[in-house]
Design a protein around this nucleic acid. Structure first.
Length: 564
DNA sequence: ACAGACCGCGCC
DNA sequence: AAAGGGCGCGGTCTGT
């Protein structure tokens, strides 16, 4: 059972439909919800765009158990159908369905070879007072439009499932991800200013009163200036630094850490130390906290599916790049704990399942996959680092001539063949897809064959690396979305009925293959079980009967820094 | 003065 | 034969 939702003139209208999208007569289900607060958890809400409707609803205390997000689903469907050039907003879909004039398309980002961008702030359904340009054409009844678009999408999802059985799961999981992202943005990550201050002062010295460099950072800058005999050196200026290093006789092409590290010169150590401190100060220092942390919570905006592979992106505060150096500031409030879990080495495990490579599948039985590869494929148990580099090279497209890569190819031919097939498809301008059916955008017309034979070859190989990586990165994202969807439901069952932002366990962080739940201490054990069960469910639903093992070990901690 | 490119680097 | 994938962000530099 589903309920279509649209707002008209400030009133919220609901219409029950069946799973195929056919309207049901009022009373047919034995109940007629009049507000979203009454929708039972087994009913799926159908609406134009979660990100537009749900934040206010959730802030008002209404928690939606499951939804079908028309915008998210349209994007997945268009990708599967190879219709990348068509708009994915509900308004654009409505125009296609009815022959109405199409809405203005968002501009492609330009620097990317695929087009156009999925991002558009416009929903054409006026669900929230938004920027102009989102209105449906005059005379269109929004609820009727939601009903019609949903029915159309359900038919297309059914068609997609005949090719990719997991496609409906993908639609449900990505819709759940949209709900989760709104909730996580609302709740925020607990952030202790006290601990953060202590970490910053330990590394940088006291907070400068009038801006400028903190004392410890300034001291290192002066040390560098003296060592390079350049009194006015600004180490933040890459050109200045490069010139100064060359004058000092260092044959450097760039000032990247990797290039500097191998050099033997007294300036290198303090320079790298300066870089580390300057980075901490600029990216996660006091100014950052004032901007992004309010009332003890860090509230970034999450963008599920913000990456073409289906990974989440974030806006504001660098939420997906919280450096290890400040993770100590993520501390649960008194009486509460953090339960943190990450799926170790998810991508090669997903690759094992997709390729059904018998050797690689067997290796996933080991807790440390890379150690297993070193021992079994390279015959050198001590060469874990080589094995890891070889595997990553296989998935990223580098590592030419790497002996480890050659050994992996001999030992795991099916896995490597899947990657190389994907790379060839990309080099030819084609599209590949994840295990649940998320498609990669084909290269835009003319991009691969642009000017210059040499350059064109480089672009083809670059696109091949993109598709090579897409198959594993996107499939890992499939797994993670299902994990999140399953975990969210389980946590809600643990919390029981009550207001949406009550004291029960909440997802507060998600980063590609890692989840964090903030929970009352008394429920910590149950949360650990929920995470374990959600991981097992994701592996079963996404990776099927491939018999691949994905470890997801949860730890109960007070602080993120205590995560093992 | 402002916008966008570039660089370098944090995370996965 | 050779090619490492995906992001976001801050500081500086460059062009207008």
């Amino acid at each position: 059972m589903r309920i279509c939702v649209a707002d008209v003139d400030g009133r919220r209208l609901l219409r029950p439909v069946d799973d195929a999208g056919r309207p049901r007569p009022p009373g047919a289900a034995g109940r007629d919800e009049t507000s979203l607060g009454d929708v039972p958890p087994d009913v799926r809400v159908v609406w134009a765009e979660t990100a537009a409707v749900y934040p206010q609803l959730y802030a008002d205390g209404v928690r939606i158990a499951r939804c079908h997000d028309l915008a998210v689903t349209e994007g997945l469907l268009l990708g599967h159908e190879g219709r990348w050039s068509e708009g994915r907003s509900p308004a654009a879909a409505w125009a296609r369905l009815t022959g109405a004039p199409p809405p203005p398309e968002p501009q492609p980002r330009g620097d990317q070879p695929w087009a156009p961008d999925a991002e558009t702030q416009e929903t054409l359904f006026d669900v929230a007072p938004g920027p102009a340009g989102g209105a449906l054409p005059a005379g269109v009844e929004p609820l009727a439009a939601v009903v019609a678009l949903h029915a159309d999408q359900q038919a297309r999802v059914a068609a997609a499932r005949r090719e990719v059985p997991g496609f409906a799961l993908l639609v449900a999981a990505e819709s759940a991800a949209a709900l989760t992202a709104v909730e996580m943005t609302h709740v925020g990550l607990p952030w202790s200013a006290t601990v953060h201050d202590a970490l910053l002062e330990e590394a940088l010295g006291p907070r400068p009163v009038h801006g400028g460099r903190p004392a410890r950072l300034q001291a290192v800058a002066e040390e560098l200036a003296a060592l390079l005999e350049e009194p006015r050196l600004n180490p933040d200026s890459q050109p200045e630094l490069l010139r100064a290093l060359r004058r000092a006789g260092l044959p450097v092409r760039s000032t990247r850490r990797h290039e500097l590290q191998s050099l033997d010169h007294p300036v290198i150590e303090p320079l790298l130390r300066y870089r580390e401190l300057a980075r901490l100060h600029a990216a996660n220092g006091w100014a950052w906290r004032e901007h992004w942390v309010r009332h003890g919570r860090f509230r970034p905006e999450y963008v599920p599916g913000g990456v073409v592979s289906g990974r989440w992106a974030s806006r504001g505060g660098g939420a997906l790049q919280i450096p290890r150096a400040v993770r100590g500031a993520v501390v649960a409030e008194p009486g509460r704990v953090l339960v943190v879990a990450d799926a170790g080495q998810l991508e090669p495990r997903v690759l094992a399942a997709m390729s059904r490579d018998r050797g690689l599948v067997a290796a996933t039985r080991q807790g440390d996959l890379y150690a297993a590869l070193a021992a079994e494929a390279l015959g050198r148990p001590e060469a874990r680092a080589d094995a890891k580099l070889g595997m990553l090279s296989a998935m990223y497209g580098g590592g030419a001539g790497s002996p480890a890569l050659a050994a992996l190819r001999r030992r795991f031919p099916a896995a490597l063949e899947l990657l190389e097939d994907a790379a060839r498809t990309g080099e030819d301008g084609g599209s590949v897809r994840s295990v649940l059916g998320r498609a990669s955008p084909p290269a835009a017309d003319g991009w691969l064959d642009g000017p210059g034979d040499e350059a064109a070859g480089g672009r083809r190989r670059a696109y091949g690396r993109f598709t090579r990586n897409f198959v594993v990165q996107a499939s890992a994202a499939d797994w993670a979305s299902v994990l999140i969807a399953s975990l969210r439901t389980r946590l809600h069952e643990l919390a029981g009925p009550g207001p949406s932002d009550g004291a029960g366990p909440h997802l507060v962080f998600f980063q590609h293959d890692e989840v964090m739940v903030e929970s009352p201490q008394a429920l910590a054990g149950a949360v650990v079980e929920a995470i374990t069960a959600a991981g097992a469910e994701a592996t079963r639903l996404v990776l099927g009967d491939a018999d691949v093992h994905v470890p997801l070990d949860a730890a109960v901690v007070r602080s993120y820094a205590d995560k093992p």
